[in-house]
Amino acid sequence: MKLKDRKRVLREMVLARRFEERCYQAYIERKIGGFLHLYPGQEACCYGVMEAARPGFDYVITGYRDHVHAIKCGADPKAVMAELYGKETGCSKGRGGSMHIFDVEHRFMGGYALVGGPFPLAAGMAKAIQMKGGDEIAICFLGDSANNQGSFHETMNMAALWKLPVLFVCENNLYGIGTALERSTAVVDQYKRVCAYGIESDVCDGQDIEVVLEHAHKAVEHVRSRKGPYFLELKTYRYRGHSMSDSRGYRSREEEEQWKQRDPINMLRDRMIVEDKYTLAEFEAMEKEIDGYIENEVIKFAEESPDPKVEELTKYVLAD
């Protein structure tokens, strides 16, 4: 399925990629602390699904690899970067950090750091949607290894039982931290695992955004038309380690190179060059413009923003 506006989506994916690469650099420079889980390689998953859904309208929740999902829902990259810098202007006021990006105004309901934790939260949001009678759906993006948590099974059962309007997107990047899927999981085809609960599911390539779009379209329509929950598995790959402390000793450089041959950004770009008279020069100019924006606006904003006030340490623990 062809994207309606390939140019815009390509630009958004490049921004996501360059944003994450700049985070890497800032982490090395010790501007960003804590754990940092980066998204390069998986962009077609988030963008493909969200192009089929309604960003800012549908409720989205995910794990700790969350910067890009927040931005796609409508979060300002400046506020996301400021959060990583631990600044008061950060989207979570510097209280959350990389793993806890929130932008409730745009219905990005958070990044959570317990693997599998968002499953029941997503089902609960769907329960609320069901009660309130709106047209929204809940979308839960998680990785393959979250499916080995009890919360996965408990949630699939309840979501199916109560026919909740929730779409589970499994970004299967083949590794749970540093353990390969086939070494941790008896059934490696993730989409098959929800059959036990009578949940409709599908699987597709997670690198080609237009393939993702087509499958996501069907998935979103299923959930939005109140036919019950849906589970979509996307086969993808993260280029970097699980987090910054990961030297990727558990997989080969050859494997990484093979996946990079099917890079989601390059695939869309090359298709546009062939089909849309798009040029490499245009692409490079866009990259340059994005890098300028990240440096001169995003990083500058994060650098220049104030720290949270120590006197406000306990603000937000309970309601005032």
């Binding site: 409720y59 929740i61 029941p120 939260l121 997503a122 769907a126 609320a128 919360s151 949630t155 059962n157």
Partner: peptide, 16 residues
């Protein structure tokens, strides 16, 4: 228990 408690928490995010 963990599943339905989490489901309640998620519902509360949206005003339930």
């Amino acid at each position: 228990e963990n599943g339905y408690t989490g489901l309640g928490v998620g519902a509360s995010f949206l005003g339930v």
